[in-house]
Simulated scan of single mutants.
Amino acid sequence: MATTTASNPSLTEKLRGLSGEAVKFGLVGLSGVVVNFAVFWVCINGLHLASLRSNIAATLVAIATNYLGYRYWLYRDRDAASRKREITLFLLFSGAGMLIETGVLGVSVYALGLDSHVEQLAAKVGGLALGTVFRFVSYRTWVFKAVPEPVAEAPAAVPAPAAGVVAQAELVLAAEQIRLAKAE
């Protein structure tokens, strides 16, 4: 089977592609962070909800907006054959990321007693950073899987003993074509 440079990129090309993907992931994630923090702030200050409830509500809204960015912009060229599987895995890994984020906030508020709005936002930033690393790895690995590149069919190898027979048959065919061409 023959390999080409396109199907077997160098380490530099892989890192360049990964860094571009990470930048786009960051842009979609940044829009989700803006949504997340805006909803969190409204829930805490406007609706006077507890910090963990506010965090869960904010993260759920951000998850919904991020899915649209990931599916239709960042990973639009990835395999979308099974949307049900994709959405299920996206929600599963997003939920795990939300648990990471909420866990950091919960430890900060309830175990460490850091409950001012500024301290809660700082804990939210830390939890969001940990959750984001987890999401990036899981989304690109399991949720938005790359479409496999088509493999070029290699010509079938002819066993050594049969190679002589094949060469002889080709000579016979060539001679026959010449004979037919002269007869016409």
Rank of each mutant, 00 (worst) to 15 (best):
F40W: 03
G97V: 05
G103Y: 04
F40T: 00
F136W: 06
L114I: 02
L121Q: 10
S7N: 15
A181W: 09
V23P: 04
R76N: 07
S116F: 05
Y70N: 09
Y67I: 04
S138C: 13
A160W: 06
R135W: 07
G131P: 01
L112V: 05
E101S: 15
L114D: 07
V104P: 00
L173D: 07
L121T: 14
S116R: 08
I100Y: 07
T4G: 14
S31L: 13
E149R: 15
S108C: 04
V165S: 08
L121E: 04
E153P: 06
A57I: 10
K24H: 13
V107N: 02
I87P: 03
V39M: 00
W142P: 05
E13F: 08
S10D: 09
L91Y: 08
Y75P: 04
E170G: 06
A175N: 09
A156F: 06
E153N: 08
A6C: 07
R16S: 10
A38S: 15
V23L: 13
Y139N: 09
R16Y: 08
N55G: 05
V118L: 15
K84I: 13
S108Q: 04
H48K: 10
V158F: 05
S54V: 01
T5G: 12
K124R: 14
Q168V: 01
Q120P: 04
V109P: 03
G26R: 06
G106V: 01
T65Q: 04
P159L: 03
E13K: 15
A64I: 13
A146H: 11
V42H: 00
K84P: 00
V42M: 08
D115A: 13
A156R: 12
A81C: 07
F40V: 00
K145N: 07
L130T: 09
E101G: 13
Y72C: 05
A80R: 11
L11Y: 14
S116I: 06
P150V: 10
E184L: 14
V109K: 05
A163M: 09
L91K: 04
I87N: 00
A160Q: 10
L128V: 11
L27T: 14
E101R: 08
V151Q: 14
K84A: 15
